[in-house]
Design a protein around this nucleic acid. Sequence first.
DNA 1: CCCCGTCTGTGAGCCGCATTACCTATCATG
DNA 2: CATGATAGGTAATGCGGCTCACAGACGGGG
Lengths: 252, 252
Amino acid sequence: MLRRFFDRQTGPRMEPPTGPPLTEDELKIGLLREVDLFAGMTAAQLREISQTLPMQTCLVGGLVTSPGDDDERLYIVKRGRVRLYRLTPDGKQLTLEILDKGRIVGRMSWLGQELADVYAEAVEEALICSFTPNELQRLIDRFPSVGVNIIRYLSDRLASSEREREVMAFRSVEQRLASRLVELLDRFGQPAEIGMGIDARLTQQELADMIGTSRETLATTISSLRERRIVEMQNQRVVILDVDALRGLAER
Amino acid sequence: MLRRFFDRQTGPRMEPPTGPPLTEDELKIGLLREVDLFAGMTAAQLREISQTLPMQTCLVGGLVTSPGDDDERLYIVKRGRVRLYRLTPDGKQLTLEILDKGRIVGRMSWLGQELADVYAEAVEEALICSFTPNELQRLIDRFPSVGVNIIRYLSDRLASSEREREVMAFRSVEQRLASRLVELLDRFGQPAEIGMGIDARLTQQELADMIGTSRETLATTISSLRERRIVEMQNQRVVILDVDALRGLAER
DNA sequence: CCCCGTCTGTGAGCCGCATTACCTATCATG
DNA sequence: CATGATAGGTAATGCGGCTCACAGACGGGG
């Protein structure tokens, strides 16, 4: 079975964390300012933090981190998008989350087993910076609000994960697709010639992986939505023609 | 549709938080010591905390908190067991988690939307204590390790929730049941006359709600496992006869 | 330009499981 | 002891969605 993202694991990899900074210090601080994690900190504090933070770019298809990876770090997405997914023994993928600017993902023991068995792959060229557990610990000691921000972040992820469990348990593929498209629309929506577009390239396989169905079933579901003039899809671009109808399907 | 837990919402409710303490101060501290949240704190610190913490008991079937509930608190389970579940518009339940001693559940805005749409119900008589957001904030400021413990706790919950999403997406009812029974065995297992028992009373409806299937399908699945001498079930007690076979089913 | 790899669309067959419909067993209660 | 409520068992039926098998479309590179 050929799976696009899976294949890409053998493709471009991440540059080593010690590479020279790609940007000016000021730009770096500007980026940090947009990270939820650091909400409420002063410019001077951000500057201090930024000096210890290695930045790295990750090409499309590159893995930011994967289960085999044993150096413990907390990664922060500064630019681009990173897809988190799990891989079943027989090669099926379930996409858990799309992270964009300001979102974080951690692989460290004292952060629990958050990333056990989870892959993180750049779906757009991404700029990533990272902490070691020690740095994070020091940061929390100096700025308790960072700890609180992490708590808030994890709570959000947990809430949406549990909502998703209910959806997977009880809803049909069509409902799951509608509900996922509504979510993508809320996050990445932009006006299109007609209706609203989703600002991301998504193959049908990728959409299928998000809702835990097969590519074929997804194709027929899209066809059915197309016939009803609710959704249009052409070369990896999704356009929602009838937002209300879609919301109706999503909410049952 | 009559659902046991659902019906119980109209049954016994929680006592008001202002009731007289049920136990001596020392017992209270002993209980606090077993809460992961407070790992690493001294007896004096625990004593201080315990004085501000209201304790309350919650009878079987009572709701600790439910979506309508708008006073923001963080609840800590001291004794007994609390089931977290979501309720679909058509009355189906999905059990997300069984909390026991030391585990926490929060409904507060700065903890994110963790409890949006989640019910928390005592399945055994439970002893619960709770914080307001202010108290929690002060606690974290004074003892940063409390914040770190919350982060660790949320990470664990998130990891298991995401694992569960994969299971729901790709596994059959039999595999899901096996994998849930293995988990219950690890948490609540005890030696039985033959095989290992699960130390909890569970109706087939309750098991079905844990894996997102119907009661009928669960019954036939249990029958099939019984024929194969893997699992036995009689009046709400599950006994695992062949642990290895069960693990085999769970792991695919 | 053509070719090849990736992506998309569709149909046939099959099976898992939700639903519906009963029936029995057990137990508490009047 | 009769009654009703709750739990457990099983079988018939229908359908949603997975799998398999192709066939067309598209796009980038030699």
